[in-house]
């Protein structure tokens, strides 16, 4: 709790420092060493442990209907996991909605297993059904590692979500008058040692979008994209978005579509 408040207070100050520091030779040497550090920990990403549990959960008969998720259609047909998350979010005819991985999984858990989405939406991170969701996500995104980000922007519903996402990305507000673009809309912006990708560009969006969900070294947790976004709302001093709400999906559509053609690096490993 204290740490959280402290880090909130620091973020603004660090942003300024980081921007000033960027570009100096020393900062570059540091960046190189940090890159080496990241490379060293990338082999043996503990997200594999979560993926292992997720795969078990995928195959396990669970819920009031005592069914597995093996018939879940993530967009490439029932049961196809390989490459599925590289093509999400997408428009689904059966639900009439644009869904990201997590909301699509909620649909499968509800229709196949009879698990009430509320048990996920209202759970805390790392608890109950949401914890299980996190593990399943780890499994699914591992199966798209190395694929190309391939978002189908033809359906008009996708275009609408893209526009909503873009608007949200630039929407300023809160006590600091921040928007996503404040932190993610510049070249070479950095908070302390975190290089913040410019999510408006193809390369930046591919790097940022393409490396989440990820294992977080600092707390040993596996974070889904919903979790990543939730935390950025916090950094923006915005109220917490509802899990799986349209605004979170719209932001994902905006980032994923901007990063189209980039490489999926999930599951990532982050500080």
């Amino acid at each position: 709790m204290n740490y959280r408040m402290l880090s909130q207070g620091l973020a603004g100050a660090c942003l300024v420092l980081g921007t000033l520091g960027a570009g100096s030779a020393q900062a570059d040497a540091t960046t190189d060493e940090i890159a080496r550090y990241r490379e060293m920990i990338a082999d043996g990403n503990p997200s594999e442990l979560f993926a292992l549990q997720g795969e078990e959960l995928w195959k396990q008969k669970r819920g009031p209907r005592n069914a597995s998720l093996e018939q879940c259609d993530l967009g490439l047909g029932p049961g196809v996991v390989k490459g599925a998350s590289a093509r999400l979010p997408r428009y689904f005819k059966d639900t009439g909605r644009v869904q990201d991985l997590e909301t699509r999984l909620m649909t499968c858990m509800e229709t196949l297993q009879g698990i009430d989405p509320k048990t996920i939406i209202n759970a805390a991170w790392g608890k109950g059904e949401r914890e299980k969701m996190q593990a399943i996500v780890a499994y699914v995104v591992t199966e798209s590692h190395g694929e190309k980000i391939d978002i189908d922007m033809k359906p008009p519903q996708m275009k609408k979500m893209y526009e909503l996402g873009k608007m949200t990305f630039y929407y300023r507000g809160g006590p600091m008058d921040f928007s996503c673009a404040t932190c993610h809309g510049d070249k070479d912006k950095r908070i302390r040692l975190q290089d913040l990708p410019d999510l408006r560009t193809q390369a930046g969006a591919a790097a940022g979008w393409g490396s989440w969900p990820a294992y977080r070294v600092s707390n040993g947790q596996f974070w889904t994209m919903q979790h990543r976004l939730n935390d950025c709302f916090r950094q923006q001093r915005f109220p917490e978005p509802i899990y799986g709400s349209d605004v979170t999906i719209a932001l994902s559509v905006y980032m994923a579509a901007t990063g189209n053609g980039g490489t999926v690096m999930t599951p990532g490993i982050k500080r």
């Binding site: 880090s7 040692l193 975190q194």
Partner: peptide
Amino acid sequence: VTLGGCGG
């Protein structure tokens, strides 16, 4: 060791 104090 750089303990990232920013950004939660």
